[in-house]
Design a protein around this nucleic acid. Structure first.
Lengths: 357, 357
DNA sequence: GAAAATGTAGAAAACGTTTTCATAACTTTT
DNA sequence: AAAAGTTATGAAAACGTTTTCTACATTTTC
């Protein structure tokens, strides 16, 4: 069976060593390695034997230098601590690995300055493409990036200009459906706890909320909307304020699950019962939303699928480099309304599993 | 003010361009760039001017090829979706960035085969060092890595052999303290839901549990211990079994917070009240443990600090390369008992904030 | 004031690949 | 059988740095 020969401790074999051992030139070895034509079968076999015998592995750095690509992608997220990003990141890393790529992780904390810096670093390090999960609607650094035709795809959020390839959730519809769900449960004073308006997600979800209200003939009341709170503490404060309004809103649609959890906390501290006194919903369907103690009604999205798509679109761009330039792809994924206890639709009932509409 | 000159769209400037512009040799430019001696102040200034004028940034790939280091580290975690790893990863990425390093993220799902593959890939890609968060107690790939003197530090878990540099929690003490806490609350039938015995964390926590029992003169009962369940579904099943034993355990010490949440779920589904019928505790103090609906008593650890330490120790190794070889460092961090509602210590009381003992 | 030590700078080699170009050896076409 | 293609291969250039080696100019030492 002739195992690959460990060569432990020794200097790693180079293409020159292989060439010498197979009595050919480095050029020929390179051709064999890259499955190029113009090499006789017996020579090819000899080279392959030498490669195996020496345990040779091409040095990616040298490859990268000469322009062959670093087999590395960049991933920029707003906050890896947010389960949404963690779950998508996992799928991204996993998919990339399957295609032979590594992933450099960057965390921006939603700071445009940091994001711009990370983009610059990644390009300098010669990553072959960038996945951007944290763009703002107006975002000079990201706009520059797509304008430069550097391979990149956005996910979760997109630019206001709609420029570039992205894969996002249909946020408008998601928010519309969850809001309508409350309306169907006879709610009329429905509050909305939105994220920063500079995120497309937040802006679109707000649009969906308004659309559902309009459709039901419920007048929009701006006092029921708090904007700019995706941070837990801010959301907590905003939720307190909403819950102390009189008359109190009967439902609160939160911009994401983390925010919704802050609402649950605020309600508990104020002695407001969920869902009896106020219905609550989130967005993202993170793992914990289904926990028995939480049972959060939320808008689910296919996070793993989103990650996989992002990688696949990106690698399409990377591999078509200098080839035909396709038009940017706009992939919009459908939301799923996940009804659990927190919205009151199942008040009293012992819920075993989420209903998916 | 002379801003750095965008040079948008153009081929990036090389060291040769700088050299020409400053009328010196590339060698001299290199010396200036790396703050080496043997260059006259006025020449140095001229070079710096040229660098600024051209917006020159050294190509890291070329640097890396010649042996200068890729300014990239590898981070291998068991599951980025686990908030513990997400939080440490954030600190790691952040600290590395501050020192000018990028971080390649790898996810092993605790599969030794995958981990071995990732280690190999990372070394081939010429990362300068590796942070290992997912070693098993016996772990050939990791053992080989530290034996090869490749810069690497483990965190969270360590090898049974104690080889290599690591930063871990004092798991024995943590488990001992939380178990003793239950004992002090007059519990006698205390169950333990341990992780896989191949993780040092799980093994050590079990030791701490036994030590606390022994110290209190409570006989160890193996029927009260379930081992091997860090996965949510498995933990859920194991928790059900424990809760259906008669007589029922009055407390369950879980191996981590995610497992503890599974216990809470199982209890809810069986109609067992927490903490009235059974006390529950976790390990890690993830963000959600403090949420009002959860209020999980747990053993806290300084996750950000752990990440920072790991990076700093690693960079010490990286930068001392070929220099003096220090002995491996074993950094053991102290646990913090975080008492919340789930253990019953505060039964009835309205708890506002965690008490830290 | 000559010899030795030091400081400054450039030329060229090195890192490990891929790619271009040239050439030699065959095939096919006329 | 000469011309024109093909196909297989190697030599050498290229990628953009750092590092060594060498050379010259200055300063220090006796």
């Amino acid at each position: 069976m002739g195992r690959p020969a460990p060569r432990s401790g020794r200097r790693p074999a180079t293409i020159l060593d292989v060439a010498r051992r197979a009595s050919v030139s480095p050029a020929t070895v390179s051709r064999v390695l890259n499955r190029r034509p113009h090499v006789r079968p017996e020579v090819r076999a000899a080279v392959e034997r030498a490669v195996a015998a020496l345990g040779f592995r091409p040095n990616p750095v040298a490859r990268s230098l000469v322009g062959g690509g670093s087999r590395t992608l960049g991933l920029i997220v707003a906050d890896i601590t947010n389960p949404f990003y963690a779950e998508t990141a996992k799928a991204i890393v996993e998919t990339a690995r399957g295609r032979g790529y590594m992933v450099v992780l960057c965390n921006t904390d939603n700071l445009p300055r940091l994001q711009a810096e990370q983009i610059r670093m990644l390009r300098e390090q010669r990553v072959e493409g960038i996945i951007l999960g944290s763009v703002h609607r107006r975002d000079p650094a990201a706009e520059e990036l797509v304008a430069s035709r550097f391979p990149c795809v956005m996910y979760n959020r997109r630019l206001a200009s709609q420029a570039g390839t992205f894969v996002v959730l249909d946020n408008v519809r998601g928010a519309e459906e969850v809001t309508r769900h409350f309306i169907e449960l006879a709610h009329r004073r429905i509050a909305f706890l939105a994220g920063p308006p500079s995120f497309s997600t937040a802006a679109e979800r707000l649009t969906g909320y308004r659309r559902a209200l309009a459709h039901a003939g419920i007048p929009f009341d701006r006092r029921l909307v708090r904007q700019g709170q995706f941070k837990a503490e801010l959301a907590y404060q905003a939720a307190r304020e909403l819950l102390q309004q009189r008359p109190r809103p009967t439902a609160i649609v939160a911009g994401n699950d983390l925010t919704a959890l802050a609402v649950l906390d605020a309600a508990a501290h104020l002695g407001v019962r969920v869902p009896e006194d106020v219905g609550v919903s989130g967005f993202d369907d993170i793992e914990l939303a289904g926990s028995e103690r939480i049972q959060l009604t939320t808008v689910g999205q296919q996070k793993a699928e989103m990650g996989r798509l992002a990688v696949n679109y990106l690698l399409e761009l990377v591999e078509a480099r200098d080839g035909l330039r396709r038009d940017p792809i706009h992939h919009v994924l459908p939301p799923t309304l996940v009804v659990r206890r927190s919205c009151g639709a199942m008040a009293g009932a012992r819920v075993r599993r989420a209903a998916t509409l």
